[in-house]
């Protein structure tokens, strides 16, 4: 499936969604992050909590994605990354990313975000350099992929909020989760 095809699919999918102000999302998310920073002592546990919340979102969001985007099974992990970057991110966040930096095995890549609506109005003080502000998005991706039987690791490695030129997510394929037949006993 070509990049063009996915770009178009992303636009079509987003156009069908009910919309809400990006500012409201950004302000709500910012307020949530502030609350977490207040509740937790360590910045790392905020990162973990954001990722976990993202995961909880991802395991549900994925079904809306599958139902509304019409995207079928991916051929390989390259395909998967492109779908996330061009269709999924577009459909929910109204942004797209570039997929670059593939390793030779084609199991790891980088998603370069042109824009991150969550970052709107945000400035990170130097004392919070360890905070992965947008880590919720990484959790969403991990949760969503787990539901389609793929275990991955996903985390922010560069962030414009920290002075980097771009915001980048490192996405790495770990394993296919086999569908096992388990005799479920109540």
């Amino acid at each position: 499936m070509s990049r063009q095809h996915y770009l178009k699919a992303g636009e079509v999918a987003f156009s069908k969604m009910d919309k809400v102000s990006a500012e409201l999302l950004a302000l709500t998310y910012g307020s949530l992050v502030t609350q977490l920073l207040k509740d937790k002592e360590e910045i790392e546990s905020v990162n973990v909590q954001l990722e976990k919340m993202g995961y909880n979102i991802g395991i549900r969001l994925v079904d809306e994605f599958l139902a509304k985007s019409g995207i079928g099974p991916c051929q390989d992990f390259r395909d998967t990354a492109e779908v996330i970057a061009k269709v999924a991110l577009k459909m929910f966040l109204n942004v797209t990313a570039d997929v670059t930096g593939w390793n030779s095995d084609l199991t790891a890549c980088t998603l370069v975000l042109h824009d991150n609506p969550l970052n709107e109005f945000v400035e990170l003080p130097a004392s919070m350099a360890g905070l992965k502000y947008g880590e919720l998005i990484c959790g969403v991706i991990r949760g969503g992929l787990e539901q389609v039987h793929m275990r991955v690791s996903c985390t922010f490695v560069k962030d414009v909020l920290k002075g980097d030129d771009t915001s980048e997510i490192a996405l790495e394929f770990k394993e296919i989760l086999k569908e096992e037949f388990v005799d479920e006993d109540e």
Partner: peptide, 29 residues
């Protein structure tokens, strides 16, 4: 600096769905 950035235009839209999920998680938290 964030102070130098323009924000005179409305930034745009995102899906209601994501917002709803986020809000839901926030309530759950």
């Amino acid at each position: 600096s964030i102070l130098d950035r323009q924000f005179s235009k409305s930034k745009g839209e995102v899906s209601l769905s994501l917002y709803a999920f986020l809000f839901s998680e926030m309530v759950q938290y």
